[in-house]
Design a protein around this nucleic acid. Sequence first.
DNA 1: TGGACGATGTCAGTCGCTGACATCACCGAC
DNA 2: GTCGGTGATGTCAGCGACTGACATCGTCCA
Lengths: 179, 179
Amino acid sequence: MLAALALYTERGYEQTTVADIAQRAGVTERTFFRHFADKREVLFDGSGALQETVVAAIAAAPASDGPLDVVGAAMERAAVAMQDRRDFARQRAAIIAATPSLHERELLKLATLGTAAAAALRDRGVPPVAAALAAELGVAVFKVAFEQWITDSPDFPACIRAALAELSALHTPSPAPRP
Amino acid sequence: MLAALALYTERGYEQTTVADIAQRAGVTERTFFRHFADKREVLFDGSGALQETVVAAIAAAPASDGPLDVVGAAMERAAVAMQDRRDFARQRAAIIAATPSLHERELLKLATLGTAAAAALRDRGVPPVAAALAAELGVAVFKVAFEQWITDSPDFPACIRAALAELSALHTPSPAPRP
DNA sequence: TGGACGATGTCAGTCGCTGACATCACCGAC
DNA sequence: GTCGGTGATGTCAGCGACTGACATCGTCCA
């Protein structure tokens, strides 16, 4: 519902009551809860689609690619899909950042995305622990890149690539690998 | 409160009312909420101490170590501190796994741990993005290792080391590292 | 026409959580 | 020893999120 988003930005999440949202949307409080599991869920409608995008990208990756490349590419795919909604993402992120309760929910969505990605990797034959780890890495990259995207750079896929580069840089630090 | 933990395991989290917990603990519902911010927080009492352990370990690491080694060692420290409470951790994990709402809270705690770790890394001079990424990696390793610990291996620090090994293996895939 | 079905409204109730105020035990100052 | 302060607890009233049960209504199809 756009009514909810508007009210959340106007007067803040906690100051907004479900009755308020329902009224502005022209429905009953009861039917609000028939559309959304709870008051927070309104802001996470697209999460299902995002997850499908990632899972599909993982499944479609060339068999020769390693787990890390696969998740990296999948996250970039997701970034491409979100690219043209930066303003919306920003507004949403602002509300979420201002509300611990919503932050919680977002973390849950990302974690769910992570386990779905891990499952998709396992379907490719990646052993369970490696799959879980690679998926978590992918989510970590997504988080960091998202932050960069809404604060600094307008190019989300580029942020993903940059974060991936940082990631591999972490594994080849100052000391020369083998003297 | 141990009263809460007991009731949560006995009849499940959602079936347990705060009034129940308070009654078993011999206090009022009101004083329950004076001790804990909300019904979930009871299960996350130790999280502050855990975070302090990790942050302290990061701050105390030798200046020559790279970010990844630093967080890895810090997580191992945390693992050592938890090592002798495996049964408790198990029971707690079972309750949490059975309750989405509690899963959410746990993710929030881990995320908070992550940002604290990132801040500690930045204090060492690690640049912000690398710090954030390394911290997320540390949390990811912790998650995976924890899972291994309570299901398979009784040695938590060893699980951390194993997960760290898997992590670096991800960056040196199928092609043999050194023939 | 009628009847099945899905979306919505209505109502009552439970539970998490909070603010305001009272009570009480303990403890140091005088 | 008493007084006053302080911190922990109890009491009470109330709001808001969420749910279950039942009624209503529109739509579409036989």
